[in-house]
């Protein structure tokens, strides 16, 4: 098992524990092995970039970490809870409480304003309308978009849309932020802004972030980089420390 050596973390508590994780997909009559016997521990407060060629299993691993999919084999524990033993509806509820997603194409709801988009995860909580408004305002302020709260996604730039998506991912204060190519659709300067924002969230808000990316410059913003290939961790899971 590989425990990431991350001396700069605020805590040594393990947030994510993967043991012997395997994932098979059925393709017609054949079974395709996407992940095999994967062991990995991630500490709370880390910012980890997952890199690797297409088809290496990065997104599959991210989906497992986000409770969007279940492993075919092994143990997957996040925050002490066994995701591999949860039913589909239990995973749905778990996602609402513990994880925030940031997608490459933002995935905002076009008919909702920025603030209504951000409010979506809070509709799954028992917060009052007033409390929800308060949280939404705080999240939008954190990503620097308070003045765009009433705008629809079509009225925002790509970078602004991704900031709204980040605010949406943050608003319910999840344990884990999962980013799938969050800068893949942005120009360089905007991408750097977004990555800096993620860095700030990690360093100042102590958010645990796992980011899938093809872009080495994006990966450089993380604390650690983990390489994957053919469904396994490269170099036995040793990480590259970026020095952040």
């Amino acid at each position: 098992m590989t425990a990431l050596e991350t001396q700069t973390l605020a805590t040594d508590e393990l947030l994510v524990q993967l043991k012997g994780i395997g994932k098979l997909y059925k393709k017609g009559k054949e079974q395709v092995k996407v992940l095999s016997n994967l062991d990995l521990d991630i500490r709370r407060g880390d910012f980890l970039a997952l890199m690797g060629p297409s088809g290496s299993g990065k997104t599959t691993l991210l989906n497992l970490l986000g409770g969007l999919d279940k492993p075919s084999a092994g143990e997957l524990k996040i925050g002490g809870q066994r995701l591999d033993q949860m039913s589909s509806s239990q995973l749905t509820k778990w996602r609402a409480r513990h994880v925030g997603f940031i997608f490459q194409f933002y995935n905002l709801m076009p008919v909702l304003t920025a603030e209504k988009n951000v409010e979506l995860p809070l509709l799954l909580t028992n917060l009052s309308s007033k409390q929800r408004k308060h949280h939404v305002a705080a999240a939008l302020e954190l990503v620097g978009l308070s003045n765009r709260a009433k705008h629809y996604p079509s009225e925002l730039s790509g970078g602004q849309e991704q900031r709204v998506a980040i605010a949406r991912a943050l608003v319910s204060d999840p344990d884990l932020l999962l980013c799938d190519e969050p800068t893949g659709d942005l120009d360089r300067a905007t991408a750097d802004d977004i990555l800096s924002l993620l860095q700030t969230l990690n360093q100042q808000q102590h958010k645990t972030i796992i980011m899938v990316t093809h872009d080495p410059r994006a990966a450089d913003h993380a604390r650690h980089i983990l390489h994957m290939d053919k469904g396994a961790l490269v170099n036995d899971g040793r990480v590259t420390d970026t020095g952040h």
Partner: peptide, 9 residues
């Protein structure tokens, strides 16, 4: 996206 966020089926 809604399902990923935690909305039920």
């Amino acid at each position: 996206t809604l399902r990923a966020i935690g909305f039920g089926s």
